[in-house]
């Protein structure tokens, strides 16, 4: 079995796991993304990132319904460098498709944490903004940015593919300008995010951070 990797000083508790499972996961804290020291190189990297936005194929809510038209012939998002990927390890954009139920939120967090940095989150629809349709439901979270950093909100119910395209372009603009630092925000406010997450996810049987 794997050896427990010990970080230098500040380590995660992974307290949701059994002793046996603790062996399976790292307890190292996530690290913020450091831009390249040379600005031109960083700019080039941002340009490249902006033009190859790979979306994690995880339809978390109703929003997924408009991703199909977006990715197929009519709106053909591939021409903007957008592609769907089956696994978090290959993806750079997480599209929160509307509401997140508590059970899904847990999977969203795991998937998000597994994504390689720099990574970006787009939230579709009204529900992640302020609860939307399910603001009084017992099983959905209302303000999504309490649990994960969101780089861009696209309001609508559902947001049409056209506005998704517009949103992707906006995201590209932001990435190129180097303004998308949601992932770093997550690292910086890690404890705050974790405590919020744990407030709603009662059966926290997963490592504190997956990578």
């Amino acid at each position: 079995m794997f050896k427990k990797t010990l970080n230098t000083e500040d380590t995660l508790k992974n307290s949701g796991l059994t002793d046996e499972e603790q062996q399976l996961f790292s307890n190292a804290r996530p690290q913020a993304y450091e831009p390249y020291p040379i600005k031109a190189v960083e700019d080039f990297a941002n340009w490249a990132r902006a033009n190859s936005l790979w979306i994690l194929a995880f339809g978390t809510g109703c929003g997924a319904i408009e991703l199909r038209p977006l990715m197929t012939a009519r709106f053909d998002a591939n021409r903007f460098g957008v592609a769907g990927r089956p696994t978090p390890r290959q993806s750079s954009v997480f599209v929160i498709g509307g509401y997140a139920s508590v059970k899904t939120l847990k999977r969203i967090i795991r998937s998000y944490e597994q994504m390689q940095g720099p990574k970006f989150v787009i939230a579709l629809g009204i529900c992640p903004v302020n609860g939307g349709m399910y603001f009084d439901s017992y099983n959905t979270v209302n303000q999504f940015d309490q649990y994960l950093p969101v780089d861009l909100y696209i309001t609508g119910c559902m947001p049409r593919p056209e506005v998704l395209v517009a949103g992707i372009m906006e995201l590209q603009k932001k990435i190129k300008a180097g303004e998308c630092n949601g992932a770093n925000l997550y690292v910086e406010n890690f404890d705050w995010y974790k405590s919020n997450q744990k407030k709603v996810i009662k059966n926290w049987d997963m490592p504190d951070y997956n990578w």
């Binding site: 009204i126 992640p128 903004v129 302020n130 303000q143 999504f144 940015d145 969101v150 780089d151 861009l152 909100y153 696209i154 309001t155 609508g156 947001p159 049409r160 056209e162 506005v163 517009a166 949103g167 906006e170 932001k174």
Partner: peptide, 12 residues
């Protein structure tokens, strides 16, 4: 009109 994109959830 249907497009409103923002990075601030409090702006809607």
């Amino acid at each position: 009109e249907y497009a409103w994109i923002s990075d601030d959830p409090d702006s809607f």
